[in-house]
Each structure stands twice: as C-alpha cells, then as structure tokens.
C-alpha cells in the first residue's frame, strides 16, 4: 500500500475520512459555536466585489445591503479564511497522496469542453440554490445535521433527492 500511496489512486478509508471530518466539524462547533461552510465565502466575495465596482448599486440592492455594514468589510468574514484553509488543506493532502495535476476530469464519452460547460452550469445553479437555502451542502446540510436542525436535514434530503433524480437525466455526462 505504501508503494501505491503516491500515485494518486489512494484514498483513505471513507469511515476514517468521515470521522476526521466529523471531528473537524465538532471542533468548529466547540470553538466557534457555528458550523462549517463554503458558499458563504462566495457570497462575501461577491458582495465585496459588487460593492467595490458599484457601491451605490450594492447599497440599493436589498440583498447585498443585508451583508454590508460600515465598520466591517464582508471580506473579513470567518468563512473566507476558512475557505483559504480548505484550499491549503486540500493542497497538503494532494501533495501527500500525489494528486497535484492540472487536468479536466471527465467521462470518456464526453469532451473536455462539454464537461467544463456542465461544470459552469452546475456551479451557477448551486450558487443560486445555496442562497435560497441559506447554505450549501457543508453549511446547511452537514453542519445542520450535526445539530439536528430542521432546515439542515430538509435541505440535505432535497439536495440528495433532486441530485439522484437529475443525475439519471444527465447520466451521459458521467458514465
């Protein structure tokens, strides 16, 4: 196993990964009183960017203005640092297990271009959906489940239920 570890095909046992992730999530709750998140950082960045480009527009928009306050820049948000941490942690793991490689991963049945368009469209929908649900798979579903919140568990079921359905519709993209 040690020999294969660096060729990029080795993944840790999923239950070990789950316990690790669970401990990180628990630690986050224990230290900060909130869960993990990812889409919140995207929102903060968008709000900051729009505010920098068109300040009056951001102030007028009811959604941006919710997250704008005079003394704190939304960029200094907790989640932005957390996402920087995700990038660092992912990079570390990728280095250890030899997975650092610039590439487009796609099913042999589709072209790279098609995969990238689908990824962009998927990201776009995910971005819209995460704002409706006030969090994404990590922020709403995973963190919500840990504290047994109704919104977390309902959102989780909605995500996985609809993903299951649509994945068969878009089956050609994957297998």
């Amino acid at each position: 196993m040690a020999k294969n570890k660096r060729d990029g095909t080795f993944y840790i046992n999923p239950y070990l990964g789950g316990v690790l992730l669970g401990l990180v999530l628990f630690g986050t709750y224990y230290i900060t009183g909130r869960g993990l998140g990812a889409s919140g950082a995207v929102k903060s960045t968008v709000v900051t960017a729009v505010h920098a480009v068109a300040p009056s527009h951001a102030d007028e928009n009811k959604y941006y203005s919710k997250f704008l306050s005079d003394d704190v820049s939304p960029m200094s948000n907790w989640l932005v640092f957390e996402v920087l941490g995700i990038l660092a942690g992912g990079f570390l793991s990728g280095t250890i297990y030899g997975r650092l490689k610039l590439k487009v991963e796609h099913s042999p049945k589709i072209t790279s271009k098609r995969r990238l368009i689908a990824a962009l469209a998927g990201g776009l929908l995910f971005g819209i959906g995460s704002q409706f649900a006030r969090g994404c798979t990590s922020g709403a579903a995973l963190s919500g489940m840990a504290v047994l919140s109704a919104s977390g568990i309902i959102t989780m079921m909605a995500i996985f239920g609809s993903a299951y359905l649509f994945s068969w519709i878009f089956k050609k993209l994957w297998i």
Binding site: A118, A119, L120, A121, G122, G123, L124, L125, F126, G127, I128, G129, S130, Q131, F132, A133, R134, C136, T137, A140, I154, T155, M156, M157, A158, I159, F160, G161, S162, A163, Y164, L165, F166, S167, I169, F170, L173, W174
Partner: peptide, 13 residues
Amino acid sequence: GGIIMGMGFALGG
C-alpha cells in the same frame, strides 16, 4: 434551494 442545488450537483459533480 435544495432542489436547485441537487440539479447543480448532477450537472457539475
């Protein structure tokens, strides 16, 4: 939101 995210999941992976 969950349903929209699920659709994005299936498209984007």
